[in-house]
Design a protein around this nucleic acid. Structure first.
Lengths: 230, 230
DNA sequence: CGGGATATTGATTGATTTCAATGTGAGTGG
DNA sequence: CCACTCACATTGAAATCAATCAATATCCCG
């Protein structure tokens, strides 16, 4: 598998990013263009959407399901840069080839638009250009936040940060439905699956969370998690 | 090897970033605007240029010297996101407040321009908007590359990646003059200073590098380092 | 030529990984 | 509907890499 990437962060709602500049009315020019121009494409669980090193011809938006973007080292070690949830843009990168691999975590539907179309649209329409920048700058902010976790946080802190981050964009404020496997979480957080598993068990034993099933986590004590969020 | 920024970002020559779109003539519209409009400001070694959480009123370009941008955890653990060298843009972020602290590593001179001016310029001039996006997308690419190092690389691999990345943008292809301390390197690579020091010594004992003085490193065997670059 | 900051080196500890079973759950076919 | 199976997850024990604790050593500065 190859990889490339685009936006990172976590599950960031790319379209919700804010401009630093007063451009309120134009905030959705790019997003709207996507909705108008985008064609729909479905992918099965684990299918590759694009691979690292491939020409980056299209830009994507998650319609339903979840997508991971990751990079591999030559010996197979993997770093997931971001999980993309519905509404998130991915595949928008500097350069002509994807720096990441994008894969479907669950069955997903994406919208896609030719990159060249996005770019020429941006060249003509300042509002589009502005939102285009915002989406990228927001991804950068999340990437930086994640660097802090990877470089300086303990396993417990990384898990706590991850859980709170996911919960933020969940309907049910307290119960998180994870679309991704433990391995995905491990590769996102720079840990082994065993450490992820052990740390979740530990947090459960401390009554910070509850694990009703593999893919479902109930946050019982946000304060405890926030404290770990350093 | 070319001047690809592979690494860690840093020191990236922001103005040299490539668009994915044919926009050759406009590549320096933003950079040029900076040169025209920017006011000069000097900072002493270790002086703070701006602090995390402060309103992000200006955008900066390094004129001379080196700058680090970093984030702190509440207990003082620090992650340096990037080192900025002459020509690099920094301080350009999503949102109205800085997500980082920027400090002078050595005595530095920076150019700065009001963010609002940059933004309205971009709104009017597609070439500026395009380069603005490129600069940010390029920073994102480096951040992602660095995430891979922080999440998945060993100490030796991180150091090798770091050295090759810095050497890429050095005049003298073989001898690297480090503007930053071991502590800065450690906080950039997510290691302790002792591990940085030990790893450099190890690489020296393997004849991959030579350490004529604290701040100077000679690369004696790039292949050995590249092998570690995974 | 000192002196403090910065860096190296050594010894030890400790968090996380790795290796190794065991457990659990969802899907399939009888 | 149940049994089987395979992928995924948990748990345990041992090994390992890097952090921490602790002295020196070196460099740059005045």
């Amino acid at each position: 598998m190859r990889k490339q990437e685009t936006i990172s962060g976590t599950i960031g709602n790319a379209s919700g990013s804010k401009l630093g500049i007063p451009a309120p009315a134009s905030r959705r020019a790019f997003t709207d263009a996507f909705s108008m121009l985008g064609a729909t494409l479905p992918f099965r669980r684990n299918a590759e959407i694009y691979g690292e090193g491939e020409p980056s011809e299209y830009v994507y938006r998650v319609q339903s399901g979840a997508v991971r973007t990751s990079k591999l080292l030559s010996d197979g070690r993997r770093q997931i840069g971001a999980f993309h949830m519905p509404g998130d843009i991915f595949g928008l990168e500097a350069g002509d080839t994807h720096q990441f691999t994008a894969e479907a975590i669950s069955d997903v539907t994406v919208l896609f638009v030719k990159r060249s179309i996005i770019m020429s649209l941006a060249a003509r329409d300042g509002a589009v250009a502005s939102e285009l920048w915002s989406v990228t700058a927001d991804a950068l902010r999340r990437a930086h936040e994640h660097m802090l976790a990877l470089g300086r946080k303990s396993a417990q802190e990384r898990i706590a940060t991850f859980l709170l981050g996911i919960a933020e964009r969940t309907e049910d404020y307290d119960t998180v439905e994870l679309p991704m496997s433990r391995l995905d979480i491990a590769d996102y957080l720079g840990l082994s699956i065993e450490t992820v598993s052990r740390t979740l068990s530990l947090l459960e034993s401390e009554a910070a969370i509850e694990l009703p099933s593999f893919r479902r986590i109930r946050l019982r004590n946000r304060d405890a998690l926030s404290r770990l969020n350093a």
